[in-house]
């Protein structure tokens, strides 16, 4: 029985703005095992980003149920910098160059500069962007920027990595590279990964297990094991095993009674 890295147990959540309350999550439960890549798939606006932010202690609203991260609360996990998030957009600071952006987490944690810099260069090299370390951000393509963001998220040596549809706005070739890089990094650093996306294809390619979310207020409608071999390649998405896994996720999505999913097939 593998250890549980992240557990949502009967979580309810609603945003509280002035007088109105927006219910986003209703009775959400799932477990993510250590070193697993776990995916949440659901239509846009169903609350995926909200789930990640809840699990990272970044939202306030009315909450019930429990979220446990390696035995502690999300707030404590955040304070101890055990979580890193890769957002949908590369959130880089335009007034810093590539290396300075990557060094931000070490600066915030007040780590000694010299070893941090060495670590940053090593990770940039691993991500294939070391040559750009002294470039300003606006000279980089979207894919490069997302790589730099990924490198930055690894600087704090997190146990958990949250991915909020980081591949959605990238073109095919870049997406392929980044999917590969993410798998490699997750394995070599033994990260636990929580990936949320509306793309069935990305989720099946990346994840060990996929939870299909119902539309808002969201909850898990079905859990599906994706037992494809690793490392997985983007080209694999036309192979029978992949298509079979994809169609099982697709069926689960359709079983929700809604065809609101974008991406994936059709």
């Amino acid at each position: 029985m593998p250890e549980t890295a992240l557990r949502f147990d009967d979580v309810h959540f609603a945003y509280e703005n002035a007088s109105i309350s927006v219910e986003v999550i209703r009775s959400l439960s799932f477990d993510v095992s250590s070193h697993e890549i776990f995916g949440l798939v659901g239509p846009s606006g169903c609350g995926k980003t909200t789930i990640l932010k809840l699990a990272a202690d970044l939202v306030t609203g009315s909450t019930s149920g429990s979220i446990v991260i390696d035995g502690t609360s999300p707030a404590q996990a955040r304070a101890e910098r055990r979580i890193a998030i890769l957002f949908q957009r590369p959130i880089l600071l335009p007034w810093r160059n590539v290396l300075e952006n990557v060094l931000l987490p070490s600066q915030i944690a007040d780590d000694p500069p010299a070893p941090s810099k060495a670590k940053a260069m090593e990770l940039l090299d691993l991500a294939g962007v070391a040559d750009f370390s002294d470039r300003p951000i606006h000279e980089l393509s979207g894919g490069m920027q997302q790589r730099v963001s990924l490198v930055r998220s690894l600087m704090s040596e997190p146990r958990l990595l949250y991915l909020d549809e980081p591949f959605i706005s990238l073109d095919e070739v870049v997406k392929e590279d980044l999917l590969q890089l993410t798998q490699r990094v997750a394995q070599s650093l033994s990260l636990t990964v929580l990936h949320v996306s509306h793309s069935l294809e990305d989720s099946v390619l990346l994840c060990d297990r996929v939870a299909v979310l119902a539309p808002r207020p969201t909850t898990v409608s079905q859990l599906i094991d994706i037992s494809l071999d690793r490392p997985r390649h983007y080209q694999q998405r036309i192979e029978p095993e992949f298509l079979e896994a994809l169609s099982s996720v697709r069926n689960a999505v359709h079983a929700n009674g809604r065809n609101a999913l974008k991406g994936g097939l059709q």
Partner: peptide, 14 residues
């Protein structure tokens, strides 16, 4: 940018 603030908060910045 609220996302940039989230980035800093996720890193437990003061």
């Amino acid at each position: 940018d609220p996302d940039q603030i989230d980035l800093f908060r996720s890193l437990a910045a003061t």
